[in-house]
Amino acid sequence: MNKVNTSRFKDKAFRRLGMVVTVSCLLILAVFVGFVLYMGLDRLSWEFLMSLPSRFADQSGIYTAWIGSIWVLVLTTLISFPLGVGAGIYLEEYGKKNKLATFLEINIANLAGVPSIIYGLLGLEVFVRIMQMGNSILAGALTLALLILPIIIVSTRESLRAVPSSIRDASNALGASKWQTIWNQVLPASFGGILTGVILALSRAVGETAPLIVVGALAYVPFAPRGPLDEFTVLPIQIFNWVSRPQHEFVINAAAAIIVLLLITFVMNGIAVYLRNRWQSKMKW
């Protein structure tokens, strides 16, 4: 009987432990976010958003940084969206079950696990040096596009797989060609899922720092970029730069900039989750 009691005790203890551990993780997150808000919220103002960087902490702003981030984000979207979705369609709809398909699959799984800083080295050599784009927004966006490509491909394939084959069969039976079926039936049915994956991937790109540093995004850019070939900085690099300074005023600036960055990331993830839920409730096969 004693043994049974020990077992029951262990069972109860683990239930408690599991709950405590899970809630602790969330508490840590809450403490982190609370700390940043406490430190940076007072610094956050319209002026902070619209000011150029400066040697003086209280005059510095994140104007060049967020403009740079938006430039990079837009270009990365334009490059990675068609490429990733195209590759996803090919692998899921056209790909045959052969050695080549297996190779492509292993390759994409591998790319998803390559550290982001390695993509930076690739971008530095291919885009900055060989293609002579210099330390430009375009070079940075191309690098990030390659970085998030595996994520977009994987989520596109999952969304396409969720479309039942009866829809494809019906379309084919009506005489539609393969592409007509994909374009008119499969893509509209899976678009919500694809979009969710793309937004999640882009929210990751917004927070990426290391590859852009390697590609040569600068910590200090006196003016906001005007075209894709201009030099640039982004919000995470501006934060990194300020965190590394010994003066406390700059660290406060970093906290304020982090609030902006977290806001962007959370909003993008929120949109993605909303789209996923709406899409899932709408598409019931």
Partner: peptide, 14 residues
């Protein structure tokens, strides 16, 4: 989903 640079700030400051 929190960017890693933000985690760096947490590590250093908290």
């Amino acid at each position: 989903v929190v960017p890693t640079v933000v985690y760096g700030f947490f590590a250093l400051m908290i």
